[in-house]
């Protein structure tokens, strides 16, 4: 099943930014957050965001019927 794009470029940019930040704090620089679980959670969220930005489609948007790509 082809993934239908539903993210606008700005949306993608924001997600890449958030994704990289969260992955950084989650898995790269572990000194900021000492709690392992919190770090993991952030990291996973970062990956989810980054993934959504990469495929230019957010599954939650798709389920909620939101589309920032075609306004």
């Amino acid at each position: 099943m082809a993934i239908k794009r539903n993210l606008h470029n700005i949306d993608i940019a924001i997600r890449i930014l958030i994704g990289i930040t969260l992955i950084y704090f989650g898995f790269v620089d572990t000194s900021y957050i000492s709690n392992d679980m919190a770090r993991w959670l952030l990291g996973v969220f970062g990956i989810v965001n980054f993934f959504a930005a990469a495929v230019r489609s957010c599954p939650i948007y798709a389920l909620a019927g939101i589309n920032t790509y075609q306004k």
């Binding site: 957050i33 000492s34 709690n35 679980m37 919190a38 959670l41 952030l42 969220f45």
Partner: peptide, 17 residues
Amino acid sequence: GTPLSTTLFISIWISVW
């Protein structure tokens, strides 16, 4: 503080979803 704010951040995120 840190785990709590992380939890808050994630729970807000999930809430929005």
